[in-house]
Design a protein around this nucleic acid. Structure first.
Length: 670
RNA sequence: GCCCAUGUAGCUCAGUCGGCAGAGCACCUCCUUGGUAAGGAGGAGGUCACCAGUUCGAUUCUGGUCAUGGGCUCCA
């Protein structure tokens, strides 16, 4: 009897027939020799949806849909990197006997492998490991996949003394196929997939060592992690490494120092000192947000930074957030420096009896906040202990939620458009531990909370769908007090940053017993919406510096233009020009140094001054300036009026777009 | 908080196998007054992060502390 036949359906819909047990590699080869060579994995759908990527030597046993993963795809690159991590692990075990292996996956820009080795690894070790890896690659050892029984695997890894692997075997669900992958005489417990052989791992580099906890839990033993990256060819690897170099040049910490924007001092770890130029940008951003607030009906308030901990007991921060707060005892009372504005804003809401007619009440606050972030997690401006948010809280009726959220989404789109940043929306739903799931609640209470949550999630989803946005859903990622919508934006180096957030909160209004008088004369509980657009100003400035590489748009540039006189005799004219520009609201400085023109031009370029105006005899006689525009090149000689007009036009600060303004005109209460 | 690395002039970095600490840029002074990315000369500037220990002697060796960076974790 001949082998049973199976039918394989390819992505283009064509069908091919093979003997059962034919591997993905064979299928690829049968389609074409090039595809056969480039195939590094496949995605199989046996009628139950596409599975994970599996390797090319997996036999196909039943009819299926098959998508072949090639070296060109992202999925293929992941396979390569995962294989590279195996090669690294085998090199490490060869070089450092007694080292235990744990996990070694592919990650965003490369791969890592976590080892148990008490001495850890030094940067010098990395070179030795790389050299050993090269040998393994040169040997071109095939990756071999084996399906094994749980007991077999246990016995095998226990025999090698690989206690972490044995432990992990215990947490693999029953019924799941257990596989090992080997190359040469080295074997790892692994789900795969892998490239056909080690020879394909041509371009790789080990990049750093780090500590990491077993399974990411700090109660677990500390492991030694080695990071690396791998590509299909040297060119791509080089491109990646130079991309990293480029990012280093834009590092906001470096530019912050070079452009005299901010600094840090050991007396206030992780709390930035904004210098004049950095503070200018900070304030310009606040002004931008204020222009939106005016249109969107937000009222700005100012609230105390230090308050009695009683407030935070009421808000719940005392129980859940105290370890992240700066505390101080004064007059035998315990005070705390506020980490968030929300509790203070509830106090303002509660100073009056509120009517349903005056909702929504939108309270904005740029006050500085302080959070004690554990040492070791802080970084430049992106993670600080002292910061301000463009923070606001909206107190509204449940029926007003869609309108309010919709406007926030529109605002977010509008704002990031001004910075040339693409944005993406994520929807985070109820987490396992959340309001209404505490132990000891009655069934009735529980059900009422469940209803509130599903109503809120339903509303958010409706809004998102209504705004006709594509968004991703993150089940269980919401805040414990309510579901949320997060926005991520992409910077000029294609890195994503989570900045904005809009969160529904059912908890605080309850804790502070907030209410309003409803249309029937009874009392109802308002819903609170927490929202921030730029998020923390500190972090946004950090992102902005890297996004622009320090070339700020004219409206944000602390110094918009620098006047350079060709000789010192021209300085009076330079000053006259400067005064004219200052009178028109332009931020202009003069370089008074007795240096040559080239020197001063270079200095202005290094400091990324957007516009340089050169004045010499010719310009004096013609009442003009010679314009050198950083982003546009040499604009030649321009009359003073023309130069001022060009500057003013380019320096116009962004404001809410028309669509947003029109939209707000439809809202009853501003 | 944990793992690893780093800390020398304002910045970028040399250096000292334990014996009076260096460069370039920036800064100050003088000369030079020049047409679109570095003119010349001179000067000043450091408790080698901080605190202990070993030593005749510590920036260097040892221990601790602080800060920064890369990760882990956390971000009710």
């Amino acid at each position: 009897m001949s082998d049973p036949q199976i039918t394989v359906t390819l992505p283009d819909g064509s069908q091919r027939h093979y003997a059962a047990g034919t591997t993905i590699k064979d299928v690829a080869l049968s389609i074409g020799p090039k595809l056969g060579r480039d195939a590094v994995g496949g995605v199989v759908d046996q009628g139950d949806g596409p599975g994970d990527v599996i390797d090319v030597f997996t036999p196909l046993k039943t009819d299926c849909k098959l998508k072949i993963v090639t070296v060109k795809s992202d999925a293929g690159l992941e396979v390569l990197r995962h294989s590279a991590s195996h090669v690294m692990a085998s090199a490490v075990q060869r070089l450092f006997p007694g080292t235990q292996v744990t996990f070694g996956p592919a990650v965003d820009n490369g791969f890592y492998y976590d080892f148990k080795r008490d001495q850890g690894f030094t940067p010098e070790d990395l070179e030795v490991i790389e050299a050993e890896m090269k040998k393994i690659v040169a040997a071109d050892l095939p990756f071999v996949r084996r399906e094994v029984s749980r007991d077999e695997a246990k016995a095998f890894f226990a025999g090698l003394g690989e206690t972490f692997k044995v432990e992990h075997l215990g947490s693999i669900p029953q019924g799941e196929t257990i596989t090992t992958y080997s190359h040469g005489d080295w074997t790892d417990l692994c789900r795969g997939p892998h490239v056909p052989s080690t020879g394909l791992i041509k371009a790789f580099k080990l990049t750093s060592v780090a500590g990491a906890y077993w399974k990411g839990d700090e109660r677990n033993p500390m492991l030694a992690r080695v990071y690396g990256t791998a590509f299909w060819d040297e060119k791509a690897l080089e491109a990646h490494l130079s991309h990293i170099e480029e990012a280093k040049k834009r590092d906001h910490r470096k530019l912050g120092r070079e452009l005299d924007l901010f600094s840090f001092h050991p007396v206030a770890p992780a709390m930035p000192f904004f210098h004049a130029k950095g503070a200018f940008i900070y304030n310009q951003l606040i002004e931008l947000i204020r222009r939106y607030y005016q249109v969107l009906g937000f009222d700005e308030v100012i609230t105390p930074m230090i308050v009695d901990m009683e407030l935070f007991k009421r808000s719940g921060h005392y129980d859940h957030y105290r370890d992240n707060m700066f505390l101080c005892d004064v007059d035998e009372r315990e005070f705390g420096v506020k980490p968030m504005n929300c509790p203070g804003h509830t106090l303002i809401y509660a100073t009056q009896k509120r009517s349903y007619r005056e909702l929504p009440i939108r309270i904005a606050d740029f006050c500085r906040l302080h959070r004690y972030e554990r040492s070791g997690v802080t970084a430049g401006l992106t993670r600080v202990r002292s910061f301000a948010q463009d923070d606001a809280h909206i107190f509204c009726r449940e029926d007003q939620i869609p309108m309010e959220i919709g406007v926030q989404i529109a605002m977010m789109k509008d704002i990031f458009g001004h910075f040339g940043m693409e944005s993406q929306v994520g929807f985070a739903t109820r987490p396992a531990q959340s309001l209404g799931r505490e132990v000891g609640l009655s069934t009735a209470e529980r059900e009422s909370w469940d209803a509130v949550w599903s109503r809120a999630e339903g509303v958010l989803k409706e809004v998102l769908d209504g705004e006709k946005l594509s968004y991703s859903t993150h089940p269980g990622d919401g805040a414990f007090y309510g579901p949320k919508i997060d926005f991520r934006v992409k910077d000029a180096l294609d890195r994503w940053h989570q900045l904005s957030t809009v969160q529904l909160d059912f908890g605080l209004p309850r804790r502070f017993d907030l209410s309003y008088v409803n249309a029937e004369g009874g009392e109802s509980r308002p819903v609170m919406i927490h929202r921030a657009m730029l998020g923390s100003l500190e972090r946004f400035i950090g992102v902005l510096i890297e996004h622009t590489a320090g070339d700020f748009p004219l409206w944000l540039a602390p110094v918009q233009a620098r006047i350079i006189a060709v000789t010192d005799e021209l300085l009076p004219y330079a000053e006259e020009v400067r005064q004219l520009m200052l009178a028109r609201g332009l931020r202009v400085r003069t370089d008074h140094r007795s240096e040559k023109l080239g020197f001063k031009i270079r200095d202005a370029e290094i400091h990324k001054i957007p516009v340089v105006m050169v004045v010499g005899k010719k310009e004096l006689e013609a009442r003009s300036v010679s314009l050198r525009w950083r982003k546009r090149g040499d604009l030649g000689t321009q009359s003073l009026d023309q130069a001022i007009a060009l500057m003013l036009q380019a320096a116009a600060a962004p404001s809410p777009g028309e669509a947003l303004t029109r939209r707000m005109q439809d809202v009853q209460r501003l």
